[in-house]
């Protein structure tokens, strides 16, 4: 069955069709990469799904329920987690408090005024941090973390509401290649264990080709290709709009 169904999604900015009649599905447990050159409409597409932008037309269905017009926080409550392109945490909190915040929200305890927040869901938060390998940094101020670690903490936060779908906007941007592979491998392992579906955008082709179950390609707001790594790599249209001559990627693409 399909977890997320996008039907004829469109969005126009000042006369430019940023996203033009885009349709695709994500099946349960699928690891789907959304790629395309800068300005292709990836972020716009993404932001419509997570509720930050209202679509002009088309439908977004999650497990059959329509997401159009819902606020990001309501979409989260339906069981869709997300991470951001530029990772950041709540900087005035410790690492574990960041995760606890999400757990508190998930348990609908936000408006409680009495019991200290630091005592709530600490065990569960430690478990989530352990899953991403960050339990040792639990009580450090989150703003002191290295960028790669911030990404891990963000992942732990995104998993706090036991999502069934995870939206990841350029999850490896700003990370070293080794860290990239580690992080995506970690995500892949977690989603297989938990049966989560993932939609992610990505510039790092080695990551995409190594891990994605399926790849869809956007260019100038339209979906131009949909298939596995091999068919995308061999697609002449994709090559033209995206890869250039491939000179800088001969070696890194060969993973």
């Amino acid at each position: 069955m399909s977890d997320l169904a996008i039907r004829s999604l469109s969005k126009t900015f000042g006369g430019v069709r940023a996203v033009n009649e885009v349709s695709f599905d994500i099946k349960r447990g699928e690891f789907l990469a959304l790629i395309g050159p800068n300005g292709a409409g990836k972020s716009t597409c993404f932001n419509m799904i997570n509720g930050q932008l209202p679509p002009d037309s088309g439908e977004i269905l999650f497990e059959g329920a329509k997401l159009n017009g819902k606020k990001p926080r309501d979409i989260w409550r339906l069981g869709i987690g997300r991470t951001f392109q530029v990772a950041a945490t709540f900087n005035s909190m410790t690492v574990i408090e960041n995760v606890q915040m999400a757990l508190i929200s998930h348990a609908n305890q936000v408006y409680r005024l009495w019991k200290p927040a630091s005592s709530l869901h600490r065990e569960r938060a430690l478990e989530l941090l352990a899953q991403v390998g960050m339990q040792d940094a639990a009580d450090r101020p989150s703003r002191e973390l290295a960028y790669g670690d911030v990404k891990r903490v963000e992942l732990a936060i995104a998993l706090a509401n036991d999502p069934r779908l995870l939206l990841m906007d350029e999850p490896t941007a700003g990370m070293a290649p080794k860290e990239r592979n580690d992080l995506i491998a970690l995500v892949k392992r977690l989603v297989i264990e938990k049966g989560i579906s993932v939609l992610f955008t990505e510039h790092s082709m080695d990551v995409v080709f190594a891990f994605a179950d399926r790849i869809i390609v956007l260019a100038r707001g339209r979906l131009i290709a949909d298939g596995d790594a091999k068919s995308i790599r061999d697609n002449p249209q994709v090559r033209e709009v995206y890869f250039g001559t491939g000179k800088t990627f001969q070696k890194s693409g060969a993973h």
Binding site: Q52, W76, F84, A88, F90, M101, V110, Y111
Partner: peptide, 18 residues
Amino acid sequence: YAMRAGRDSPLRAEAIGL
């Protein structure tokens, strides 16, 4: 904590249901 989360990053706070 929710107050500070909303101040530190409104976008992220909304994304975890606040």
